[in-house]
Nucleic acid binder design. Structure first.
Length: 458
RNA sequence: GUGGCUGUAGCUCAGUCGGUUAGAGCAUCGGAUUGUGGUUCCGAGGGUCGCGGGUUCGAUUCCCGUCAGCCACCCCA
């Protein structure tokens, strides 16, 4: 509405940054669990890095310009060319297989709409130098485990998998000619997004016999792997690919993600550079765009970087994923980053004064706690405690801390109901002295309060 | 790039059949016996009614344009 960020770009206010951080945390945790290591490259690249792969028509979708050194440059729209460039430059020195991940911010000059902005963050996970389908299974397992890490289940998200070689073998067995294959791919790719009659029409136009048109559309509509295996398992053009795919599915089972996966021959992924097994993650209700997409691109590094290595990878953006987590209520309340304590004036405030109160704040900070305090001395001394506690509670602070009239120092939990809130009493002299045992006791108590609060909510 | 819908406070929305100083709830800020407190009460700030032009004595309201957002297409991440 009002003038804020540029169209398609986002401001991340603290609440929104917390959500982004939640997603990033899950991405990094799972990627590391699968022994991938993080890398990054520059957000600005030479324009021809992208035109080399995709042709000049891609320029219309790029943020590109001429820099002050007269270089044609573009903000990166995807990470794979950068990865290819980096791997190619050190190809002989890198231990294979390379298992790398990155969380780049990517840019595209396109009209923004739901789930699709001009800028987003995308987890990229890639394996370079391994041709086995075990690598394909490993890769999909990473993506699925990220869903688990974020609290999603196989009832929320489906992994749809296919294999270009398998699809090709099936088509050849059915009698589709080499020249007709691209047209068939185009139709299959769009199968779910256009009327069946239109798909049939396009196939007929490509010279495919009416009976075959029905067979192809039937396969695209949802053939199970068992049906495919039964029909094409011993066909010469398809046998090898059926067997490989069966091994792939077995590996997925062994890696514990089998129940998330369904065969979907209509997953083609854009026609471009994929050469083998491809997959996409979708929300099970089918309301959103793809959460994640990837697959094997064995020839890309050669065409892009001049190094002939098999490779595969996927990209998972933060936008659609964030929408899904939001819809399912899976973003945690912002308590994880909550401030530990806020100083308020208790009955003993008059005996100690503001300077000594700030001394307490400083001791707590040195002990590693995050501590806030009112920055107005008169207010601290003059404002009713209930108002100060109120303010701390509203600010999301975990506990209030104050001097009591009897000389003790007390912390009071702000996490649950206010009536009968748990408190923790300390000797003021020891607390002000930063006594290690007192600080540890306070730390344990605070952790206890957070655990209790979490159990009540969950 | 094409088409449809929508723009009033930080958020969710009222309202004006064209008429003087545009409203509510929530949120924010201040206050309500120097103090066991998320309640309640009082008060304050905050809007060129997206922007520009046209019609009119007068436009936030009607018309046109434009920008932005949403949705679909195109394309892809």
């Amino acid at each position: 509405m009002s003038s804020g960020a540029l169209p398609g770009f986002r401001d991340f206010y603290p609440d929104e940054l917390a959500r982004r951080a939640h997603i990033f945390r899950a991405w990094r945790a799972v990627a590391r669990r699968y022994a991938f290591v993080e890398y990054d490259g520059p957000p600005l690249e030479s324009l021809d890095l992208y035109t080399k792969k995709s042709g000049d028509e891609i320029v219309g979708q790029l943020y590109n310009f001429v820099d002050k050194g007269n270089r044609e440059v573009a903000l990166r729209p995807e990470m794979t060319p950068t990865l290819a460039r980096m791997v190619a430059a050190r190809a002989s020195a890198l231990r294979k297989p390379v298992r790398w991940f990155s969380i780049p911010q990517l840019f595209r000059y396109e009209r923004a709409q739901r789930g699709r902005l001009r800028e987003h963050y995308q987890l990229n996970v890639d394996i370079v130098g391994e041709a086995s389908e075990v690598a394909d299974a490993e890769l999909l397992a990473v993506a699925v485990d990220i869903m688990r890490e974020l609290g999603l289940t196989s009832a929320d998200v489906r992994a749809r998998v296919s294999d270009r070689r398998l699809l090709n073998g099936i088509l050849v067995t059915l009698g589709v000619t080499e020249e007709q294959v691209p047209a068939v791919y185009g139709v299959v790719d769009k199968f779910a997004r256009q009327p069946r009659e239109l798909s049939a029409e396009k196939l007929a136009k490509a010279g495919i016999a009416p009976a075959l048109v029905e067979r192809i559309l039937g396969l695209a509509a949802g053939a199970t792997f068992e049906a495919v295996r039964a029909e094409f398992g011993s066909a010469p053009a398809a046998q090898e690919h059926v067997e490989r795919f069966a091994r792939y599915l077995a590996h997925l089972d062994a890696l514990g993600v089998g129940e998330w996966v369904v065969l979907d021959l209509s997953i083609v992924r854009g026609l471009a550079y994929y050469t083998g097994i491809v997959f996409e993650l979708f929300d099970a209700k089918g309301e959103l765009r793809a959460i994640c997409g990837g697959g094997r691109y064995d020839t890309l590094l050669k065409s892009l970087g001049g190094v002939d290595l098999p490779a595969l990878g996927f990209g998972m953006g933060d936008v659609v994923l964030g929408e899904l987590l939001n819809d399912r209520g899976l973003f945690p309340a912002a308590t994880e980053e909550a401030t530990d304590f806020q100083l308020v004036a208790g009955n003993g405030a008059g005996q100690h004064g503001y300077a000594e109160a700030l001394g307490l704040v400083t001791v707590l900070r040195r002990a590693g706690f995050s501590v806030a305090h009112g920055m107005n001395a008169e207010r601290y001394m003059g404002q009713a405690t209930r108002n100060q506690v109120d303010g701390a509670k509203k600010a999301g602070v975990s506990a209030a801390i104050y001097f009591r009239e009897d000389g003790a120092t007390e912390a009071m939990s702000l996490l649950g109901k206010m009536s009968g809130a748990p408190t923790h009493t300390m000797d003021t002299t020891a607390a002000l002295g930063g006594d290690a045992a007192v600080m540890q006791g306070l730390r344990d108590w605070l952790q206890q309060q957070r655990d209790n609060a979490r159990n009540q909510n969950g």
